[in-house]
Deep mutational scan, measured.
Amino acid sequence: MEQATVKWFNAEKGFGFIERENGDDVFVHFSAIQGDGFKSLDEGQAVTFDVEEGQRGPQAANVQKA
């Protein structure tokens, strides 16, 4: 698992990007966020996640709020 920071997340559209420590951004979809209830992330929030290869490149999976 990697630890990184949420760059931005649009709760209405259900997706955003996580900024990795190496500077690369990773796409995150609300369905990858672990937990119950409304799944959203806040800008600047610390998260841990795995990286999977998606249809359009790397994307976050198993996202957990740190």
Rank of each mutant, 00 (worst) to 15 (best):
M1H: 12
M1D: 08
E2D: 08
Q3D: 06
Q3F: 14
A4G: 15
A4T: 03
A4R: 04
A4P: 03
T5F: 14
T5D: 04
T5E: 04
V6H: 01
V6Q: 01
V6A: 01
K7V: 05
K7T: 03
K7R: 10
K7Y: 03
W8F: 07
W8R: 02
W8Y: 06
W8E: 02
F9E: 00
F9S: 00
F9L: 01
N10A: 06
A11F: 09
A11T: 12
A11G: 08
E12D: 11
E12R: 14
E12K: 15
E12P: 05
E12G: 10
K13L: 13
G14A: 04
F15G: 00
F15Y: 15
F15K: 00
G16W: 05
G16C: 08
G16Q: 03
I18G: 00
I18Y: 01
E19A: 15
E19L: 14
R20W: 08
R20G: 05
R20S: 05
E21D: 11
E21F: 11
E21Q: 13
N22M: 09
N22T: 10
N22P: 08
N22H: 11
N22Q: 10
G23Y: 07
D24L: 12
D24G: 11
D25N: 12
D25S: 11
V26R: 00
V26T: 04
V26Q: 01
F27W: 05
F27E: 00
H29C: 08
H29L: 05
H29A: 05
H29K: 04
F30Y: 13
F30D: 00
F30R: 08
F30N: 02
S31C: 08
S31G: 05
S31W: 08
A32S: 09
A32N: 06
I33N: 01
I33R: 00
Q34K: 11
Q34N: 10
G35P: 03
G35Y: 08
D36C: 15
D36M: 12
G37Q: 06
F38M: 08
F38D: 07
F38R: 08
K39E: 06
K39N: 06
S40E: 07
S40H: 11
L41Q: 03
D42H: 15
E43V: 15
G44W: 05
G44I: 03
Q45W: 09
Q45H: 08
Q45R: 05
A46R: 14
A46K: 13
V47M: 03
V47L: 04
V47S: 02
T48N: 07
F49R: 02
F49H: 03
F49A: 02
F49D: 00
F49N: 00
D50F: 15
D50T: 15
V51L: 12
V51E: 04
V51S: 04
E53V: 13
E53N: 12
E53G: 07
E53I: 15
G54K: 07
G54L: 06
Q55Y: 14
Q55N: 11
Q55G: 10
G57H: 04
G57A: 04
G57N: 03
P58M: 10
Q59E: 08
A60M: 01
A60T: 00
A61N: 08
A61G: 08
A61Y: 10
N62H: 09
N62P: 01
V63R: 02
V63P: 01
V63I: 06
V63N: 01
Q64T: 10
Q64Y: 10
K65Y: 10
K65C: 10
K65G: 08
K65P: 11
A66P: 08
A66G: 10
A66W: 11
A66D: 09
A66Y: 12
